[in-house]
């Protein structure tokens, strides 16, 4: 029955404990120290992770504002001037980003996953949406080797 099982368990527990009072104190102290170490480790890693995510969010919001201002500049240009301005900027050393105007959305082999990527993409979407007053924006990560530029046939590494 449950009662005899409980008594047997208690007996087995008592047998595995140290026989002396001193031994039992030592055991309690060791267990206590290990538990404190574990608790501090858990708190410390979660704080480090939070601060890393906060840093990442600040960094990505800085880049997102910069992207938004570049996009606003190109959007404000009359249609027929966009290519001329792009060529001029490239000759002069270029903007901070690679910019092109295409007839359709280029395919991007999106890479990466996890909370960090989600945070960056979410920050970019939020800032670009509110800064440019649009709702159709795609934010993706690409490997440099598979990055397409100008159209779906030209890879960056071939340029």
């Amino acid at each position: 029955t449950a009662d005899t099982r409980w008594r047997r368990l208690r007996r087995r527990l008592a047998r595995s404990l140290p026989g002396t009072l001193r031994g039992r104190f030592v055991l309690i102290m060791v267990v206590g120290v290990l538990a404190a170490q574990l608790a501090s480790y858990v708190i410390w890693t979660s704080q480090v992770r939070d601060s890393r995510l906060a840093q990442l969010e600040e960094l990505s919001s800085n880049v997102a504002f910069s992207v938004a201002s570049t996009m606003r500049f190109f959007r404000s240009l009359p249609r027929e001037y966009r290519h001329i301005v792009l060529d001029q900027l490239r000759d002069m050393g270029g903007p901070r980003f690679f910019v092109s105007v295409n007839e359709k959305r280029l395919d991007v082999a999106d890479i990466g996953e996890g909370p960090e990527k989600a945070r960056v993409v979410e920050t970019f979407r939020r800032i670009l949406t509110e800064q440019l007053d649009i709702d159709a924006v795609s934010v993706e990560f690409s490997r440099p080797e598979t990055l397409r530029v100008f159209n779906n046939e030209v890879l960056l590494k071939d340029l």
């Binding site: 996009m71 249609r79 910019v99 359709k104 890479i111 990466g112 960056v120 690409s142 440099p144 990055l147």
Partner: peptide, 21 residues
């Protein structure tokens, strides 16, 4: 490092493409 690509439809058949190269 990975490259961030942002694409935005300005008008029909006009996509602004921006990559952090």
């Amino acid at each position: 490092p990975p490259i961030l690509v942002v694409q935005l439809e300005l008008e029909p058949a006009t996509w602004l493409y921006l990559a952090t190269i």
